[in-house]
Design a protein around this nucleic acid. Sequence first.
DNA 1: GTAATATATGGAGGGCCCCGCCACTTATGC
DNA 2: GCATAAGTGGCGGGGCCCTCCATATATTAC
Lengths: 193, 193
Amino acid sequence: MSAQRADARRNYERILAVAMEEVAAHGADASLEQIARTAGVGSATVRRHFPGRRALLEAVFRERIATLCARAGELAEVADARAALLEWLGAFTAYAASARGMAAALAQEGLLDPEDGGDNACSAQLIQACGPLLRRAQRAGAVAPGVAVSDLLTLITGIALATERHPDAAAEAERLLGLVVAGVSPSVVTARG
Amino acid sequence: MSAQRADARRNYERILAVAMEEVAAHGADASLEQIARTAGVGSATVRRHFPGRRALLEAVFRERIATLCARAGELAEVADARAALLEWLGAFTAYAASARGMAAALAQEGLLDPEDGGDNACSAQLIQACGPLLRRAQRAGAVAPGVAVSDLLTLITGIALATERHPDAAAEAERLLGLVVAGVSPSVVTARG
DNA sequence: GTAATATATGGAGGGCCCCGCCACTTATGC
DNA sequence: GCATAAGTGGCGGGGCCCTCCATATATTAC
């Protein structure tokens, strides 16, 4: 028999659809009970399909993240390594800043320690997607060797978190990304002895 | 008569002391009821002295922020404008990354819009303290003119938020600050057309 | 010292949320 | 159709935040 019953699958889809709207409206700490109510199911059913808020958030953002990873694949073909990386970082920033709750979800994940091993997590996919772009840019001399993928993702996640309340969050986030790329005060190479 | 009764003042102090420990232990979303319980007062008393979690967090971090602002005053005397700014940014980063909840409190405040007018807020004090350092560095040509004080504070707040779960949060945050100061890829001045 | 008064307090109650349990329903394979 | 296992949802427990109000207490005036 199929691994999952048909009605269960239907409920899963419905809950996920409602969750997307609810998270978009109320951020990462949307009420699970409210989601259950709107979806017309019991709260236990939500918990069954998504054990814990993290699982739900992961599912909510999975598609968007997949799109982002695909974009990274395309950009690997672009000639200018630096431009490709910056383009992707910009796209990621735009997503993270506009999709409410995504940054929070990423921050609470194991985004920070890249060798976590949990390769099914969203952050792991992002790391895997961004890695080649970064390494190529580093080989081209556009980025210092000491910079890790997780550094970039952490910075952007932080920007998204800190600008979440801004009226025009996406624009502000992209502006700050530009600042980070260019450097606040890059004049001296070895900053702070 | 005095503006406040003596026992009220005592309770205020006690609640604040407990709140400091509790916030240090559980971050910005520590339980207000737990604080009340530990302090041996009713939860209503906590709410009376600190209407809303924000007010409590502000009080918790007030001293630390004052110290930070004082440090900015000292650094205004340092000859090297760039070094002075970077030193202060480093100090702020260390504080924000080590004091659990502080970054969250700042992010939820009106940190992002500098012309809010609420000059009693913590973020306003920080902006006022950092402003002279930044302007001096900009006059010295060490920082681009378009950079605002709130940009720097927002970036650092974001770094602190994104590194909160890191095993060695303070070190990681300072490392990322270094990256932001130096720039991820500063080679071309006008990033992304 | 005592009475009068404004001030401060904390416990009860309501609302919301997360979580786990268990009897009931329902799709599925024979 | 029927047996069965998968799926469901309501219920109760625990916690938190918030408000209200009767009570207790520091303070002031006499």
